[in-house]
Write a protein that binds this DNA or RNA. Structure first.
Length: 214
DNA sequence: ACATTAAGTGATT
DNA sequence: AATCACTTAATGT
């Protein structure tokens, strides 16, 4: 019987992994459906599984003691969380928080399988290495943005990234949420958005910002 | 109609 | 660019 889970796994991961590994994934992985805005992992939570995204998208944020956030990067289907990779080597606690951007499907792999599969499957090894690579690239991009871009440029990049990720020019967020993701304040974001609107780059609605282009 | 939440504004640091 | 204090606008009940 082909379950939805099997379909999802072979459709999303069949190109990346060898057949035997796909079968292992189907046998061992636990499928988990996530609601939009659901928190998947909290900071300090013990990591028991390696999540691989089959459908949807997740945002990964850092958080300080005061609960203030900073968006690190997004992960999409086929991706796994590099932070989890790093943490699970020592089976440590999560350094980040992960929140679903939309309803998503993920497959959870018990951490024990990491080592077994590393030894057994070359496609698994290169997938893990590749994931590290991509994630570090993304982190560097984020660091560059924080260090070198002006907030208005960062804001526009944020909106465009968001739009690209969800495949729509209509970004559904409040100014407050943007401020939190960029670790700025609501008033500042509102003013910068106003400027972008005046420049004709966006249209502002309540709870929604419409990009003119990506 | 009223309360709540989102967004806009002017002044100050 | 951040914060405060306040206003206005939109939305839910």
């Amino acid at each position: 019987m082909t379950s939805i889970k099997n379909e999802l796994i072979s459709n999303e991961l069949g190109y990346i992994f060898e057949e035997e590994l796909v079968n292992d994934l189907i046998k061992i992985g636990k499928l988990k459906s996530i609601r939009a805005d659901e928190t998947i992992i909290q900071i300090g939570e013990k990591i028991q599984f390696l999540p691989i995204i089959l459908d949807g998208s997740i945002k990964v944020v850092r958080e300080n003691e005061r609960g203030e956030e900073l968006l690190l990067y997004y992960i999409e289907s086929g991706d796994t969380c590099a932070m989890t990779l790093q943490c699970c080597m020592k089976s440590a606690l999560s350094e980040v928080k992960a929140i679903a951007m939309e309803p998503s499907e993920i497959v959870m792999i018990p951490l024990e399988m990491m080592e077994v599969w590393m030894a057994k499957y070359s496609s698994w090894r290169s997938y893990i290495l590749q994931s590290y690579h991509v994630r570090i690239q993304e982190l560097i991009e984020t660091i560059d943005a924080i260090a070198f871009m002006r907030l208005d440029e960062r804001l526009l990049k944020y909106l465009k990234d968001h739009a690209k990720l969800l495949g729509t020019l209509e970004v559904i967020v409040t100014h407050q949420q943007i401020a939190e993701d960029l670790h700025s304040s609501r008033v500042v974001i509102s003013r910068l958005l106003k400027q972008l609107e005046t420049k004709g780059q966006i249209i502002i609605n309540r709870n929604k910002i419409i990009l003119k282009s990506i």
